[in-house]
């Protein structure tokens, strides 16, 4: 096989991997125009690559707070440093609706995302890549755990029939007040 053929072959499998990997990959140029849009993004946003590429990100996805996003990417360009968002602080970057009618428990997809700087041939950061991870399952589990813990705390303190504080919590309160009085 010739070198060109080899190179084309390598390029083809890299593109295949990028297209089919189950995380979202978006490449943005300095003016926030979309340069790459992999199939994860196509499928979840119902926007084809042909429709997305060349478009301004904020036009296509008005849910992204433009001011915040510009600020976030500024540090990526200046420091050549990755930036992150996590679902606890920001549930999602792109609002993708829940796509599993039976097992999907959330209204939308919770996302973690990483912004990585991409160096151009001249060594400058020419674009940034956003990686979108679907963390819905983890988020839902965590949220449910938190809810269950809160419920347990209430149950352990109150009487099931009347909803009044139970003997144990009365005792605890009494003890705290008694100690406070002693001080």
């Amino acid at each position: 096989m010739s070198d060109t053929q080899n190179m084309l072959n390598d390029f083809r499998w890299i593109m295949d991997v990028v297209q089919n990997i189950d995380v979202g990959l978006v490449l943005l140029d300095k003016n926030f125009n979309i340069q790459m849009w992999n199939s994860f993004m196509q499928n979840h946003s119902a926007t084809l690559a042909e429709e997305a590429i060349g478009q301004l990100l904020f036009n296509l996805f008005p849910e992204i707070d433009e001011q915040w996003f510009r600020r976030k990417t500024q540090s990526v360009y200046i420091l050549k440093n990755s930036a992150f968002t996590t679902w606890e602080q920001r549930p999602y970057l792109f609002r993708f609706e829940n796509y599993r009618p039976i097992t999907g428990k959330a209204e939308f997809m919770y996302q973690n995302s990483t912004f990585i700087p991409i160096q151009g041939l001249n060594g400058e950061i020419g674009s940034i890549c956003i990686i979108i991870y679907d963390v819905t399952e983890q988020a839902i589990n965590n949220l449910e755990l938190e809810k269950a813990n809160n419920q347990l705390e209430i149950i352990s303190k109150t009487d099931g029939l009347t909803g009044l504080l139970n003997r144990k919590s009365w005792e605890n309160l009494l003890e705290t007040e008694f100690q406070r009085e002693a001080r």
Binding site: K72, S75, L79, K80, N81, S82, A83, F84, T86, E88, Q89, R90
Partner: peptide
Amino acid sequence: ETAEREVLIDATNILTGALLR
């Protein structure tokens, strides 16, 4: 509270990134 946490996380990312890089 969420904004506070985000400021913390962003500031950390910037400061550690700058040094460790």
